[in-house]
């Protein structure tokens, strides 16, 4: 496998179609690109197909048609654990922390594929520095954390894999405003470190503020795409998603 050239996107979707059995498709031909080092956001109303796309990218759903390439490699329909091993890691919608495990154990699970214990400890220190709240409760069961803390844990767990690209599905959903601010501050930090992120958000304003590039998804199709700043000024977007 050759390393992708600078000009090639890290992740590219071509005419991706996904369905849940039956004739109707939740995603009806989506093309999208994410370049290394970029933060790209995918916004759209509830049910537009954002989560479906992310689940497919991570191998939890098989595509019905089209292609998905990561690092130049076709990953459409590849098993989830193999996609994670390639460095495409997701913090899923609804946090999905392991409630019956401690925070420490959740973080260990994030480094499941890592064999090097010293490296695991180093990453854990980095995550705990970034999320001091987790550090205070390291031996607590994750199920006892608040929603915001669970989101931090879900992101910290994904960071334990030291991913080449991070998929964040609705990281601010259902959180108190203070936590929303905190989560976006952390995404900004990750961006400043040069991490590649595909961010799915209902909080379109915050997502557009942070992203380089944006795609607007409507009923399974890309309605609009462009630099995030331009999308944020688009009249239709303002009317539909930014409460203008």
């Amino acid at each position: 496998m050759s390393e992708p050239k600078m000009s090639e996107p890290l992740l590219s979707l071509r005419d991706l179609r996904i369905g849940y059995g039956g004739a109707t498709e939740a995603v009806k031909g989506v093309s999208l690109e994410v370049r290394a080092g970029a933060v790209v956001c995918l916004i759209g109303a509830n049910g537009a197909g954002k989560t479906t796309i992310l689940r497919c990218l991570s191998g939890l759903l098989r595509p019905r048609g089209g292609s998905v390439h990561f690092k130049g490699r076709d990953i459409g329909g590849m098993a989830a654990h193999r996609i994670a091993a390639l460095g495409l890691v997701q913090a899923p919608e609804g946090r999905q922390v392991f409630a019956n495990m401690t925070i420490a154990e959740n973080l260990r699970m994030g480094a499941w594929l890592l064999k090097d214990r010293a490296e695991e400890a180093r990453r854990r220190d980095m995550v705990l520095t970034r999320f001091p709240r987790l550090s205070e409760r390291i031996r607590q069961l994750a199920g006892l954390l608040s929603g915001g803390e669970q989101q931090m844990l879900a992101m910290g767990r994904a960071m334990m894999a030291d991913p080449q690209m991070l998929l964040l599905d609705e990281p601010s959903m259902g959180l108190a405003p203070l936590f929303v601010e905190e989560i976006f501050r952390i995404i900004a930090e990750l961006k400043a470190e040069g991490r590649t992120i595909l961010l799915v958000e209902q909080n379109a304003q915050a997502a557009l503020d942070i992203a380089d590039h944006a795609y607007v998804l409507q009923s399974g199709r890309i309605e609009l795409s462009g630099p995030a700043a331009e999308i944020a000024r688009n009249e239709k977007v303002v009317a539909a998603y930014l409460g203008g």
């Binding site: 939890l60 392991f98 499941w112």
Partner: peptide, 25 residues
């Protein structure tokens, strides 16, 4: 053991475990 942790993860949330790279099969 580490493998036990993976089993508990798989038992609790199979999807999330797969996202961490756990080979469920």
């Amino acid at each position: 053991a580490r493998i036990g942790l993976g089993l508990r993860a798989l038992a609790e949330r199979p999807d999330a475990a797969a996202l961490m790279g756990v080979n469920a099969g």
